[in-house]
Design a protein around this nucleic acid. Structure first.
Ligand SMILES: [Zn+2]
Ligand SMILES: [Zn+2]
Ligand SMILES: [Zn+2]
Ligand SMILES: [Zn+2]
Lengths: 141, 141
DNA sequence: CTTGCTTTTGATAATCATTCTCATCTATAT
DNA sequence: ATATAGATGAGAATGATTATCAAAAGCAAG
């Protein structure tokens, strides 16, 4: 249960934290901004201060429960840390986010870093393009 | 000369624009924030309004003269568009930025996008790690 | 080289996302 | 149930970026 996850992370079990963590686990979209999380909670009748949302997200990240991304929109996007590492492809028309993992790219990155004298600790790879989802294509002029 | 570049970009030739473009071409560091550009100019005796710096950078980008990046620091970094495409590796200790190009990774990206039904138009790849430059290592605790 | 029209500049206000402050409230251990 | 460290929420503060607008500068014509 979510209470366990919070306790394991060394965080007190509070209503706001439970609501936010639950939303991150249940929401249909896995990649959300703090504003979106705040709004979705409010729409669901759970009014939690925006500052509290930001605080909880920072704590969850420190505890390794979630990760943050900076897509080109500029705004920070959060997602639940679940399953193995992956990178992202974002539709520049409708904003849809898909995930992928490519062993070859991951390996090349390590080789490149080593060849440049860096000890690799992290990376951010995001592809941008237009997707072929029916909803997205429908919006075409 | 820089005047030509501005005219070709459809921009009037003005002193602030010339100074900014010249700095982008001459500075030892190719990747700079708007603030850094503003400060370097001011230190060189060329006081140009910060708003003008931001405006010029936006116009240069629209004209394809420069590109912008969002490294994990959050702040926007600008660099002169010169030579072929490349990606970046950033030292998380000293901030040094190196550039690299990997044909294999570029190709894989296109394949991945296609396999997910996306028409790839752009991408952002940044590696993070600790570099082995003497200056950087010296700062170690 | 002046005139006149258009664009640009710079100071500053406004905006946006995010963080901080602090008085009040709450989770947990006794 | 009580005490106490920690959490919350409202709103102020911050930092980066953009918008406003009067004054200044670029540019084409005469
Ligand atoms: Zn789409
Ligand atoms: Zn993801
Ligand atoms: Zn570069
Ligand atoms: Zn370094």
């Amino acid at each position: 249960m979510e209470s366990e996850e919070l306790r394991n992370a060394g965080l007190k079990v509070t209503t706001p934290r439970l609501k936010i963590l639950t939303l991150l686990e249940k929401a249909s979209e896995r990649h959300m901004t703090a504003e979106t999380i705040y709004r979705l909670l409010a729409e669901g009748g759970e009014v939690i201060g925006l500052a509290t949302v930001y605080r909880a997200l920072a704590q969850f990240e420190a505890a390794g429960l979630i990760t943050r991304h900076h897509f080109d929109s500029g705004q920070t996007v959060y997602e639940l840390e679940r399953g193995p590492h992956h990178d992202h492809i974002v539709c520049i028309r409708c904003g849809r986010v898909e995930e992928f993992y490519d062993k070859m790219i991951e390996e090349r990155q390590r080789e490149i870093a080593a060849s440049l004298g860096f000890t690799l600790s992290d990376h951010a790879l995001t592809l941008y393009g237009e997707c072929n989802s029916p909803d997205c294509l429908a919006g075409k002029g």
